[in-house]
Each structure stands twice: as C-alpha cells, then as structure tokens.
Nucleic acid binder design. Structure first.
Lengths: 221, 221, 221, 221
DNA sequence: CATGAATGAGCATTCATTCAT
DNA sequence: AATGAATGAATGCTCATTCAT
C-alpha cells in the first residue's frame, strides 16, 4: 500500500488504525454526499474523532480523498488476484477475473462512482497516483486476456483497448446502477457479459474449450 | 429543447442568447476546474457579463450546471438522428449511429466527463431530467440495434444491456482519454469498436451483409 | 402636503398621480413585509410600473418610505379635524377627536405599525419631518384637552403628557392588535378608554356635564 | 431564562459567556443602526470575536435578534419581581411594579425601542416566543392590579386592557423619549403617571389608603 | 496524542440604482 | 415619459485549518 502521505504521528500501527477509521467514515460520506458537500467536521464526527485529530494523519482534505480512492483501488488489487489464484486454465482465469472485478464493483458500488466523480478533484500529482494504480489493475485483466490469446483461445485483438471494454463493463454496473438494477441482478449482468465477450473474443478453438469448461461446470453440484 | 428553468427576462430571443453565453462559459470552466471550484464570478467574467446578470436567466448555480448538462445531451439528440437520417440499411444506420455518438463525445469530451462527475451534484428533481434525457438518447441507439436484430442481421441479445455497452464504449473515449489517446486516435478507436461489436453481435447472415457493405465502401473513392 | 421630495417630471398632476400609485403599493408591501424586505422591484410590480419609473418621482428607496409615512400622518391630520368640525361643546369635541383618532388607526392599522417600525430607518433630516408632523397632530388633541380644562371640565393636568397618553392609547390598538383583538372590538376598546380617561380627567363639573351629554346621546335614536 | 437556540459548542458556561458578549454588541448596534443596517461583521467586530465564531452560538442573524429581544424581556422579568418582593401592601406593590417597569425601560431604552421596531423581523415561530414572554410580563402587572381591586382599593376595571395602558405608559418613555425628555425627567414622568392612574383607578377607600401610605412616605427620612 | 474552540478567507446571492432605447 | 436589462457592491454564512490546552 503506497501512499507517501505523511503522518505527524510516529506509531505506525496507530497510523494504520486511525487512517482506516478516517477512510471508512470518508468513503461513506463522500459516496453519499460527494466530496465537496462533505465537511471535515462530518468526517471527524462519523469517524468518532475530533476535527483536529485528522490533521495529524493527513495533510489535506484532498489527502483524505486520495486515501479513499486508493482504498477502492486496493480492493481491486486484492480481490482479483485472490479470485484467480487457484486456477490454471487461461479461460477460467479470465472469467474468474472479470467476475471478481464485477463483484468488487458491486460491493463498493458507491465508492466506484465516487472515483469517477472525484478523481479530477485531486491535484495533478496525486491524480497520477490514482492513474498508475488503475493501470496496474488493468494490467491484471490484460494479462489474463493475453494468456487466452497466446493459448489460441481468443482472437488477436488490441489487448489494451479490449481491456478497457472489460473494465468499463464492470464499472458500468456501478455507474448505471440506477437503471441496470431494474433490468437484471448482478449474476445476470455478469452472465450476459460473458456471453457477449465470448462471442466477441473466442476463436473456434476457444469456443470448443469453453464448451468443455461449461459442461464440466454444469455437471458440478 | 426545453428546460423549464425560468428566466426573469421576458424577451425570449435574449434569453436564448444570454443562456448560450452563460452555458458556453460554464462548460469550459466546470470542465477544467470542476463545478465546485468554479465561482459564479468566474462564469460571469468568462461570459463577459456581470455576476448579477446571470441570476436573471438562472435561479441557481445548480441551474447553470443543469443547463450545461442538458446542452451536452442535446448535442447527442441532434447529431445522432442527423447522422442516420439519409440511411435505410439497418446495419449502415447502426454503425452510423455509433460513429456519430463517438464523434459527439470526442467534440464535447470535457463536457462528457463533466456529466459523469457532476450529475450527482444536482438535486434529485433536476437529476431526473438528466436521466430521462439519457434514456431518450439510449433509445435511439437501441432502436438501431433492434432493427438489425429484426432483420436477422444480429443475434437476439438483451437490447438494453447491449445498448449500455455501446454507449459506454463511446463515453469511454472521453472518460479514459488520458490513456486512450496514447493508444490510438478516434478513427482507430471507432474501427476497433466496430470490429469488436461486429464479432459480438452479427449473425452469419449479418456477416455476409456486412461484407457486402464493406466491399461497396472500400470500392468507393 | 409638504414633501420637498423632488421629482424629475414637470407635469404636477402626473407627479401626484404617480406618487399616489407608488405610495399605495408601498404601504401595502412595507406593512406586510417590512421596509427592508420589500424590494423596489416589488413596489414597481405592485404599482404596475417599471422599476426605473419610480426613480423619476423619488430619489431614494428611503424617499418612498418618507412618502408612505407622511401619507399615514396626513390621514390623521385630515380625519381628526373632520370629525370635530361640526361640534362646539369642548367635551364632545374631545371625545370625538379621540374616537376619530382610534378609528383612523384602525383603518390604517398596518401603516401605523409601520410608522413605529420604520421611522428610525429614515435619515435624520427626513425623520425630523415625521416628528414635526406627529407633534402637529398631537397639537390637535392637546387643543381639545386644553379647551376642556379651560372650561373647568377637566383637571389641570400636564397637557402634553396626557396628550401622549391619549395618543398612545389610540396607537396601542394597532401595536397590540394581535392581543387586543381577542379581548374586545374597536367600539368596546374606545368605550373602555372613554371610561378610563373620564375617571382620570374629569372634574366634578365635568362629570355632571358628561352625564348630560351622555343622557342626550342615550335618548337619541 | 431559556432560549432553545442551539449552540454547537458544548461547554455550557462558555456558551453563556459568548452569547452575552454577542448580545451586548448586538443590542448596541441594532439599537443605533437598526437590525438590517447592522452586519454580522459589525457585531463580530464589536464583540471582539471573528465572524465565524458567532455561528457556533447562533444559527442565524435572526437568532441574534431573538436573543437580544429575549434579553430585554428577561430584564423585565427579573427587575419587577425584585422590586416588589419585600412589599405586602397591594397598593405599594402596584406602584413599585409600575415604577420598576419604568426604570427598566429607562435603563434599556434603546433596546425597548428596538423591540418595537424589530419584533416583526422575526420569523413567526420565534415571534411567538416574544409574544409569550410579553404576556408573561404583563401578567405580573395584571396580578398587582387584581390584588388592588380585590382589596377594594381600585375600581372593577377590565384588567387586561388597563394593564396594557400601564405597560404602554412605561414603554412610551422609551418610544417618545425624543420628545418627553424635553418635558420632564423620569421621576417626574413616573410621578405624573401615578397621579393620572390614581385618579383613574382608585376607589374612595383606595384614596384614603393611598393618602396614608403617602403620608408615611412623606414623613420618612 | 487528542481535543474542539476559534479563525477568516471565500462564495452564492440580492437588490438599489442607472441608462440605452 | 417609460421601460427593463444590466450592473456590481454588499452581506450572510460556511468550512478547512490551526493551536492553546
């Protein structure tokens, strides 16, 4: 976890704990009311600390936002590797990654929307941190995609562009949730996405392999 | 297009002109600095009017935002029908619509990003206006998609979900422009998108039809 | 009617008419919403003229207030003499004057309250005008009082102080109307006042005279 | 006395002190310049605090006005009972109450005028508070009056109406001070009032009793 | 380490007044 | 004479940040 945000407190464990407290409060408030409508007093109250305390763990209100956004991106960076860790089959890994992504987005739906709303509110240097982190996460998806292509299971598409399609598909569940939730639930959304991307990406060989996986999965309990 | 935002000035033509002036200034400022960091004085100065003047054409700062967002959505609602108006072939209409959408997004890239950032800053009732307008625009894309399906050129997919994929694809050009612009230009982006969606959606019959269109287009000057 | 308020318009009849229009609108608005809460645009609208027009008949917003307050005091100066004009008996004139005062206050209740609220909002020189006018009105009451004393009908009291008691009694009907209206109606209020002041002021001779008048009045239709 | 105005600061003693500071500054400014002409910056500067500070002890500018008006009414509610506390004779209590009322009005002359000017500037609910408080104060005067009547010392008059006469008499010292101060000083004003109300209210028995009291007082050092 | 009272710059909004038409 | 659009100074209120305790 890399934030070069400097704290004035030395006890590292305490810093961790306090920041977690602050971020937890801020995520909720920023998500619901937006960054600008949330006051530091709001954050302090919800975090159960005094307003002054926050400034011992953070330099700025913008720093709080940075911490919040990094915490969202961190969930991605933890959940996706976890979801594919046991798997070896490229196609299985691919679908598992997408599925994990969608599920994290669903769990942190409001924070995801927040990221779209508020990243621009950060000063340039801190925004760079976020972008770098996003590229990193995309890298994990891209890697899965590449493996599928290398294995001849998917077409030779522009990897980074398609990665954006996949990532955007996941994000949309949060961004357009106000409408999508009336059309389907998360599982259906993911299923429709699988179908769509399968059509778009799989080679004939990929299709056969897919059928095999599917069959195996269907026969499972 | 009609915004029920009420002006205190009676001369309708003047209202149109002044609002256009204000919106033009606001789009630029909101896009660059964000809604909250932009002061009404900023808007007034950039629009070349006094601060007080604005309040004769708008009730609120939020009203300015509403006007700005509606102006973006209005571009969609004008450009897309214009792009497909002469065409009769369902597939041609479909690609033309997508292409037009991408091009409007490109022209109003910053305003599109602004829409994602700031719609939540509106009070509920005004946000509804925006949502309704978005659904309307989506309807135009969905109609093209349905026609292709009805003609047997595309698979029987969930129309609204796929519409969101298409729309999101266009929006992404603005939202992720910071990265995408390093990977390709707009034409390439659109071309890649066509390829991807063609794969995902076309039936065998659709593919043959597509080839024919494509051939014709290739032989053109 | 003496306001040295200067108009920019020469046609004297028009000036009268316009000012009456403006004052009528202002009395109502100032009375209900107060001077500061009423905008010149409000006054213009209610008067059915444009905002700019007002400034051709008045130099200031404060000027409008002055005109309004003078109009109230003018009603006093007209109604009271009218009420006592036919009468010769000092006691009858006295009661008639008080009664008339109360009735004018009742008719212009809100304007009377306005005078108490807003006279201090005037710049010193214009406030002097008002004070002078008030003293003038008081003079009419004081004269009636003096006549009664001179005729031996009332005690040798401090005339000006008692005049203030009388005037204040009339004003209170407006100032405390929110409470008094629940205790009695105007006629009862006046009757109670007569009784009270009679006790306080009449000499034995005055009392006998009063009984005679009363008796005559009671036997009247 | 309790104003349900809520402070954001918890230390109750501090709240008391700060509010007193603010009210003291506001009374002076509001009295001289009026409520609307006084800015919160004015109040802050005169109170020797920052503008923001005030809003931790008050919700509104109107709240400051409410606090100011309540502080005036509170003086009445404290001074009058104090003035009559040692006395048992109904007539002595009555005159002591009136005298105390006049003296409080004299001490807080400008604030009294302010009350007449500005009560209407309060929103309805807060104005109700003021009215209730006024009725309470009147109740103290009315009680003295009733006791005199019950003891056969005064006539059977309409208690509440006469109470208003008495209260108004006290208030007039402030409201018409610009003129009255040229006619007499406070003691003379009170003495003239006593004479007037004695004539108006005392029964023969009351008159004898009054003479006795008076005699005793005259023989006192 | 923690508190929370205090600061004061910053901003949306209003409105008396002007002036071109 | 009359209009009403335009002005811009003025003001109530907020809130990130500090600092004495």
């Amino acid at each position: 976890m890399t934030h070069d945000v400097k704290a004035q407190v030395t006890d590292e464990a305490l810093v961790q704990r306090r920041r977690a407290q602050i971020v937890a409060a801020a995520v909720e408030l920023f998500s619901h009311q937006g960054f600008y409508r949330t006051t530091m007093q709001d954050v302090a109250k919800k975090a159960g600390v005094s307003a002054g305390l926050i400034y011992q763990y953070v330099t700025d209100k913008e720093d709080v936002l940075l911490l919040v956004l990094l915490s969202v991106l961190d969930s991605y960076k933890q959940e996706i590797p976890a979801a594919i860790s046991g798997l070896t089959d490229p196609l299985e890994r691919f679908w598992a990654a997408i599925s994990a992504y969608c599920r994290v987005v669903d769990q942190r739906r409001e924070a995801t929307v927040l990221a779209y709303r508020s990243t621009k509110s950060l000063p340039d240097d801190r925004r760079e941190l976020i972008k770098r982190s996003e590229i990193e996460t995309n890298g994990m998806i891209a890697a899965c995609l590449k493996d599928c292509i290398k294995a001849g299971l998917m077409r030779e598409v522009n990897v980074e562009l398609v990665t954006y399609q996949l990532v955007t598909f996941a994000h949309s569940w949060a961004l357009k949730h106000w409408r999508l939730k009336e059309l389907c639930d998360l599982d259906q959304y993911v299923a429709e996405g699988f179908d769509f991307f399968a059509q778009a990406l799989l080679t004939p060989k990929g299709r056969r392999h897919q059928a095999k996986i599917q069959g195996a999965a269907d026969n499972a309990p």
